[in-house]
């Protein structure tokens, strides 16, 4: 982890699928550089041989019985749809 923060805001915003205004880009770049400088403190810690914790308790391979259950009915699943047609979600044209 290096102290020189190379945050390419355009690249990251593209990965996050967020359209940002020029003002937002400038503001986030400044604020996130400050936050990342604080976070850079973590490189002081010796983590040699330390296992990462993804989850606070060791739960592995949680299995459920393979029993069919009813899913959400179509009308409820579509209840919050921004646009729908013929019992389906409608979206702008994807292919030319």
């Amino acid at each position: 982890m290096s102290h020189s923060i190379d945050l390419n805001i355009d690249h990251v915003a593209n990965l996050a699928r967020l359209a940002l205004t020029p003002e937002e880009k400038a503001q986030y770049a400044t604020q996130l550089t400050e936050i990342l400088s604080h976070i850079a403190k973590l490189k002081e810690v010796n983590v040699d041989g330390v296992e990462p914790t993804a989850h606070a308790f060791p739960l592995y391979n949680v299995w459920a019985e393979d029993v069919p259950v009813a899913g959400l009915p179509v009308d409820l699943a579509l209840r919050n749809a921004p646009a729908q047609r013929d019992q389906m979600f409608a979206v702008p044209k994807v292919v030319e």
Binding site: S2, V12, K43, T53
Partner: peptide, 23 residues
């Protein structure tokens, strides 16, 4: 979202996310 996307992005994962999980 921007910060989280950055720390998970290619080239930064080990330095940020993996190290954070170890700490």
């Amino acid at each position: 979202i921007i910060l989280g996307t950055y720390v998970l992005s290619s080239g930064y994962y080990d330095a940020f996310y993996l190290r954070a999980q170890k700490v």
